[in-house]
Design a protein around this nucleic acid. Structure first.
Ligand SMILES: [Mn+2]
Ligand SMILES: [Mn+2]
Ligand SMILES: [Zn+2]
Ligand SMILES: [Zn+2]
Lengths: 140, 140
DNA sequence: CACCAATTTGGACTTTGTCTAATATCCGGA
DNA sequence: TCCGGATATTAGACAAAGTCCAAATTGGTG
C-alpha cells in the first residue's frame, strides 16, 4: 500500500517488486511520474514527463508498461473523457469529479458515499468495479 | 418523452421538430435507428444501420447529426468504453451496467438507486450529470 | 426559374492506441 | 569471462475513431 514518505526511485523499485513487477529503468521512471504526482495522467502525459528527463522511453514501452501496471493492480484506469484514458495511482476505492470545461479530474473519497438499491446482477456475473463520475461545469 | 407506440419515420420527424431540429431525410433515418431499437449505439453502428437501407449517409453527417442530437437533448452520451462513445436514446435519469467481456451495455433504472454522502461541489460549479457504471464480468 | 441559407459530402487529416519484427539487456551456468 | 535464452525495449507501420473543410446538393421563397 506504500505508506507515504518520499517517492524516490528506490522506493519505486521496491513498490514494483512488491507487485511482482521487474523494476527496469523505464518502469521505475513511469511509476515515478504517476506516484510522485498523485495525479490522473494520460499515456501521452506520462510519455512527455518521462522524456523530459533524458531516459527516452518509447511510446510502445509507455503503453506496455501502463497496461502491465493495470494488470498487476498497481494503477487504475479511469474512463471519463472520450478522447483518452487516464491512469490513476490511487487504487483505493474512490470516485471522481470531472470538470467538463477544463478536463480536470479529481478524487472523491468513497468514505462517506453510499450507493444503495442497485438491482441484483445477472446470473453468473461478478462486479469488477463501480464507477461513479460526477460531471460538473462552471456555472453560467 | 415520446409516449411509445410505433417509431415510424413520421413520428421521428415529429420528435425532431419538437426538439427544434429540422427533420431532414438523414436525420430522420438516424433518429429512427436509435429510437426504434432503444439501444446504445456507437457512431459506427448507426452508420452501418442507416446505410443498410439505401440512403447512403456520410460519416460526416452521422457525426454531425449525433452531436446535434446531443446538443438538443434528444440523446445522451455514454462513456464507458475507451474505444468508442455510445449514444443513448433514453434521456431519463438512469445508470448503466457494462459487461466487460462482451461490451454489452444495459440500463439500470434510477428509480431504486440512491446515492448519498457526496461532498459539496467546488464553488461556482453545477452538476451536469452523475454517471454510475457497474462493470461486471462473467464469473471465472 | 433564381436565389440564398441550410445541409450533406468526400476525403484529407489528427489522435490515440496496437502490433510486429528487430534489437538490446539481463542473468545464470560452464 | 563467455554463452544462451528469456525478458524488455524500440521504431515505425498500421488501425480505428473522430474532426475539419471546401465544394456540391437541397429546399424553400419570391
Ligand atoms: Mn477518439
Ligand atoms: Mn482509441
Ligand atoms: Zn482517482
Ligand atoms: Zn442508457
Amino acid at each position: 500500500m506504500m505508506n507515504a514518505m518520499h517517492y524516490t526511485r528506490d522506493n519505486m523499485a521496491e513498490l514494483l517488486r512488491s507487485h511482482d513487477i521487474n523494476p527496469t529503468h523505464q518502469r521505475i521512471e513511469i511509476a515515478h511520474a504517476l506516484f510522485s504526482r498523485q495525479e490522473h495522467l494520460s499515456a501521452d502525459q506520462v510519455m512527455a514527463i518521462v522524456n523530459t528527463r533524458h531516459s527516452e522511453t518509447s511510446k510502445a514501452t509507455v503503453y506496455n508498461t501502463l497496461r502491465l501496471f493495470l494488470d498487476k493492480g498497481l494503477v487504475r484506469e479511469v474512463i471519463v473523457d472520450p478522447t483518452k484514458v487516464f491512469f490513476d495511482p490511487n487504487t483505493s476505492p474512490h470516485h471522481h469529479l470531472y470538470e467538463i470545461d477544463t478536463g480536470r479530474l479529481s478524487d472523491i473519497d468513497a468514505g462517506q458515499v453510499r450507493i444503495s438499491g442497485l438491482p441484483p446482477l445477472p446470473a453468473g456475473m461478478v462486479t469488477e468495479g463501480i464507477d461513479l463520475i460526477v460531471r460538473v461545469r462552471r456555472k453560467a
